[in-house]
């Protein structure tokens, strides 16, 4: 139809994808290593966004505002793992049971925040910069920064996973925890590190989310979580590259549908892709069903 609108929306889609991708990389990393689908991830993201909001309200400057979110996210994430999840994992470590624990934790975080925030939606000020024309696409400086941040995170994750001993240990852990432990991988440290990194990425994703949407409420994390989970499942658990590619597909799909089909269905488009993959999926790889049911948190 209208090719300028299409190109525009693809441009927006790439920005949206960057936002989703940062969250999805953190989510998928933690899913790959611990084998736990963490439904409180979106709430940790909200926590991070609120932390940045508070720092911004205090006028402490741009750098503390940016650092607050990942910091709070990392702390919240590792705290959750070491307290609540550790307690339940000691009793039963089925993947499904612990997923339910994270859902309850998320519910508690969401409504506690909601109660503290007096159920309000907050405005968030963040400079979006000048517009930049890049070929057929139009971006703002801010959206370019978001895309750059996503690319940076991906590069850093890949480098850490594939070039360092630490990364090798993490990958071993995600394939076979028992064997990895037997080979002398320091499990506790590795897993805590995973929670910290994924929590920091959740917080960062929260910040990135508010810079893009400019509003934040206690319930925001849930809608974001939906896209993050869709990207992580679509991209294959534990694969940062897969998560980014899936985020691109979902991000572009949501914006293109928003531009042409009415914005009501933009998020549904992301889900429709996941549904389609579920129905048509090949019966290989991670899709072939249960691999290991045991969770290590």
């Amino acid at each position: 139809m209208n090719s300028t609108i299409l190109l525009q929306s693809i441009g927006f889609g790439i920005t949206t994808a960057a936002v989703i991708a940062i969250g999805a990389m953190g989510f998928t990393l933690q899913l790959g290593v611990t084998n736990l689908l963490n439904l409180s991830f979106g709430n940790i993201m909200t926590l991070g966004a609120f932390a940045s909001l508070i720092v911004e309200r205090w006028h402490l400057g741009l750098v503390p505002t940016i650092l607050a979110a990942p910091l709070v996210g990392a702390v919240a994430s590792v705290l959750l793992a070491r307290t609540l999840l550790a307690v339940f994992a000691r009793r039963q470590n089925g993947a499904f049971e612990l997923l339910m624990v994270t859902l309850a934790a998320g519910l508690i975080i969401e409504y506690t925040l909601d109660a503290l925030a007096h159920l309000q939606v907050f405005q968030f000020q963040f400079p979006s910069g000048a517009t930049v024309h890049l070929g057929p696409f139009v971006f703002t400086v801010l959206s370019l920064a978001l895309i750059g941040a996503a690319a940076l995170v991906l590069a850093a994750l890949l480098a850490a996973l594939h070039l360092t001993r630490l990364g090798k240990a993490l990958r071993a852990l995600s394939v076979d925890p028992k064997l990895a432990r037997a080979c002398g991988v320091p499990m506790r440290r590795m897993i805590n590190l995973t929670w910290i990194v994924s929590g920091a990425l959740a917080g960062l994703a929260g910040l990135v989310y508010v810079t893009n949407s400019l509003t934040i409420s206690a319930g925001a994390g849930l809608n974001f979580l939906v896209l993050v989970i869709a990207a992580a499942i679509l991209g294959g658990a534990g694969s940062p590259v897969g998560a980014v590619l899936a985020a691109l597909v979902i991000g572009v799909a949501t914006e293109v549908v928003a531009a042409f089909g009415g914005s009501y269905y933009s998020q549904a488009a992301g889900l429709a892709i996941l549904a389609l993959v579920l129905v048509l999926r090949p019966s290989t790889g991670m899709w072939s069903g249960p691999t290991r049911d045991e969770v290590t948190v």
Binding site: L39, A95, F96, I229, L278, G289
Partner: peptide
């Protein structure tokens, strides 16, 4: 599909 993935979907 794994039960936890199913729950998420």
């Amino acid at each position: 599909l794994r039960r936890d993935y199913q729950a998420a979907v």
